[in-house]
Design a protein around this nucleic acid. Structure first.
Lengths: 233, 233
DNA sequence: CGATTCTTTGACACCTATCAATCTTAGTGG
DNA sequence: CCACTAAGATTGATAGGTGTCAAAGAATCG
């Protein structure tokens, strides 16, 4: 009996392409680690000696300028892979947005394991390509969209990603979701200030399109109008 | 004798990890294609039935909003790989910035070939990870940097990438390079307007930091000051 | 219930976009 | 080779969107 047998994301993480024997091998070089909200797992510019699977919780990937301006360049959910395997040090920090649990590997061990398991590398490649797609879509948002469009796009994208995340058997309403992000974090995702995000959300609330957090739970009231706002708001 | 034997980028493209027999196999499913400046090879949202190695020239990857605002999300040089293998259709268009020559593969054939050649997939993974690093660094620029910082960063980055590109035996001056980009294209990379880019370049010229294009050839006069501008200009 | 943190709201300033005109470059045909 | 044209780049005036600064209002947590 190894830890992976009881792993909640055994069938969704990169491990899903490995058979039981192979998973046992991977299990041998990994260990579980709990992190608290706000704790930074990997530091930007560091040699980034670890990579990990996200078991529970949410994490942010950030880049920061010399004088402290921060941009969130990615958000990781359970079953996502975080860290930078192969060669280069990490270009961004990884910090827990909520309490989280990780399955951590020393990078050197993981690199060696991956190199000898092509199926794992293929899965990693598919995920990296998907992440690159997402990053490039976000570049369009950061470079060319107005504050209103950004906030609307963010709400749609968040609803979509959290919907995929929810794995309960019963169908859940994609228009209602818990958003464990502060204004600062939302602003850091959208390349805006907290005040601008606040005003745009206020605008959507007044327009009856969106219902802001009541104890973290937020709701999209008019998805069609929100989509229109995302295109040109 | 196959086409790859005379290929200028045989040792720099993803093919470099294949032996002669394997390259022959890849050669069998590929074909060369010349494209003219401005020609679009892959259309955003298309099924994107092709991937390719860049042999000569420069290409841009772009995302576009519904109403025509464009963001350049990547620039490809000789030996770079373009297109979206495995599953998802392409999220962005690929358009030639200069006349260019490509080594094109039907995506289905390439996918199959790659899956049966782990070394190739590993190389693809390394390149995709590096591209993701670059994309995320650019997200910081688009989300958090001022116009002055963007232009300065762009000049440094361009100098760096074109320097690596130049493979002549003699050492070339990294501070002098040819920049085959119009103001519009530069603006679309930086998420700015052409007027703002023009003004910022004018500012750097007046400050004696940078010499704008004379018949495409541009020159960095004071790299240290330019670096300072990139941090907070 | 008090203290801290986060969010909202307002007033104002500034940066960048927009609009418009001039100037330069590149390309074409006489 | 030069004039002519069209496209691209620069420069200027103006406006608008977002950032900044400040204060008041919620929410969270002991």
């Amino acid at each position: 009996m190894i830890a992976c047998d009881t792993c909640l994301i055994r069938n969704r993480a990169i491990c899903s392409v490995l058979d039981d024997t192979e998973v046992a091998g991977l299990n041998r070089i990994g260990r579980r680690r709990k992190v608290r909200r706000g704790e930074t797992v990997i530091w930007e510019g560091d040699d980034a000696p670890v990579v990990a699977n996200v078991l529970t919780g949410m994490l942010k990937l950030t880049s920061v300028t010399g004088d402290g301006r921060e941009q969130i360049v990615g958000v990781s959910f359970p079953s996502d892979f975080v860290g930078r395997p192969f060669g280069a040090g990490s270009g961004n920090s990884v910090t827990a947005l909520t309490d989280a649990e990780l399955c951590v590997f020393a990078r050197s061990s993981f690199d060696a394991f991956a190199r000898s398991h092509p199926a794992l590398e293929h899965e990693l490649l598919e995920r990296t390509l998907a992440e690159l797609d997402r990053a490039r879509e976000w570049m369009l948002l950061l470079g060319r969209k107005s504050a209103g469009e950004r906030v609307a796009t963010f709400l749609l994208e968040t609803s979509h990603r959290l919907g995929r995340q929810n794995c309960s058997t019963e169908a859940t309403d994609p228009d209602r979701f818990d958003l464990p992000l502060s204004r600062r974090q939302t602003a850091d995702i959208l390349g805006l200030t907290i005040e601008t995000v606040s005003r745009q959300i206020g605008r959507l609330r007044e327009a009856g399109i969106f219902l802001p957090p009541v104890r973290r739970t937020t709701e999209i009231l008019d998805r069609d109008l929100l989509r229109a706002e995302a295109e040109q708001g």
